[in-house]
Amino acid sequence: MTTHAAVRTTGLTKTYGAGPSQVRALTDVDAEFARAEFTAIMGPSGSGKSTLLHCVAGLDTLSAGRVWIGDTDLTGLDDDALTVFRRDRLGFVFQAFNLLPTLTARENIVLPLELARRRPDPEKVAGIVDAVGLSDRLDHRPSELSGGQQQRVACARALVTGPEVVFADEPTGALDSTSSAEVLGLLRHSADAFGQTVVMVTHDPSAAAYADSVLFLDDGRVVDSLRGPTADSVLDRIKALEKAVR
């Protein structure tokens, strides 16, 4: 067992349906995501990259195999335990619709703490708010924020509990390039400055270039990995993969 892995899967398999119409989304995936690093998961549409993220983040159930986050085996937890685990030890940023529309930005950020009935540490919250650069928009409702600002609030919420891992599912999918750069820079910064483990699914090579390493999926299997990616090197790998499929 490698101790530096924040997230580890063995034989992770996910199937939908049964019988002849059964679909295999993930087949026997063994993967590790290093602690305090920013890892991107890439692959063509339907490669199973989002399913992998959902499974390792405890949002979806597995058909077979195991998932560890730190020393915790997620497959052994029931719904309530899983919920509490997500709340206390994980952070999430989704593509869209990240925020509760009735809560202000500040309330959205501290929501996981409140759900856990933990008193927010004002200094820590202030530090995170500073990092995402939204100090002056905290009392606004999501509908009064731009898409990029909303995603930054979502990042702040993901970071506020000091989670072991932040999972981001296409966080820039609905953003323009300037806002994308802000959000990705923020995730990069959290890994560098706070030693935050970040796992991000993306289909955009230039987004993946912000990561420390990239894991490539195709047809539900891990097919490749790359350390120190650049937009070009990622694009080359993707093209190679697509060629291999044809």
């Binding site: 949002l59 719904d79 309530d80 919920t83 509490v84 997500r86 709340r87 206390d88 999430f92 989704f94 619709f97 990240n98 925020l99 509760l100 529309p101 929501l111 996981p112 759900l115 856990a116 919420r157």
Partner: peptide, 15 residues
């Protein structure tokens, strides 16, 4: 979606 989000960030069924 909103309720799903609430669940994803840690609200129990009870909540």
């Amino acid at each position: 979606r909103e309720i799903g989000m609430l669940r994803a960030v840690g609200a129990r069924r009870r909540t």
